[in-house]
Deep mutational scan, measured.
Amino acid sequence: GSPGIQSFLPPGWEMRIAPNGRPFFIDHNTKTTTWEDPRLK
């Protein structure tokens, strides 16, 4: 199987799917959430 997208996120980050189907990202380091992919910064 191919590695999940989770493995490509920075340490402490998690990806979830919102009720509307959009992915969002949780930064457990700062306890914040964002719509922006942290890998694109």
Rank of each mutant, 00 (worst) to 15 (best):
G1S: 11
G1Y: 10
G1T: 12
S2Q: 14
P3A: 12
P3I: 11
P3K: 06
P3W: 09
P3L: 12
G4Q: 14
G4I: 11
G4A: 14
I5F: 14
I5Q: 14
Q6V: 11
Q6P: 12
Q6A: 14
S7I: 10
S7N: 14
S7F: 09
F8E: 15
L9E: 02
L9T: 01
L9Y: 03
P10F: 05
P11M: 12
G12R: 04
G12H: 06
G12W: 05
G12M: 04
G12V: 01
G12F: 05
W13E: 01
E14T: 09
E14N: 01
E14R: 01
E14Q: 05
I17D: 04
I17P: 04
A18L: 10
A18I: 03
A18T: 10
N20E: 04
N20P: 02
G21L: 03
G21T: 04
G21P: 04
G21E: 03
G21W: 01
R22H: 08
R22S: 09
P23V: 08
P23G: 03
F24R: 02
F24Q: 07
F24W: 11
F24T: 02
F25E: 00
F25P: 00
I26W: 06
I26T: 04
I26L: 07
D27T: 00
D27P: 00
D27G: 00
H28G: 05
H28V: 06
H28E: 04
H28T: 09
N29F: 08
T30A: 07
K31E: 11
K31N: 14
K31R: 13
T33D: 03
T34G: 05
T34I: 04
T34W: 05
W35K: 03
W35L: 07
W35E: 05
W35D: 05
W35Y: 10
E36C: 06
D37G: 03
D37E: 05
D37K: 06
R39A: 09
R39P: 03
L40W: 12
L40P: 15
K41V: 15
K41P: 15
K41Y: 15
K41L: 15
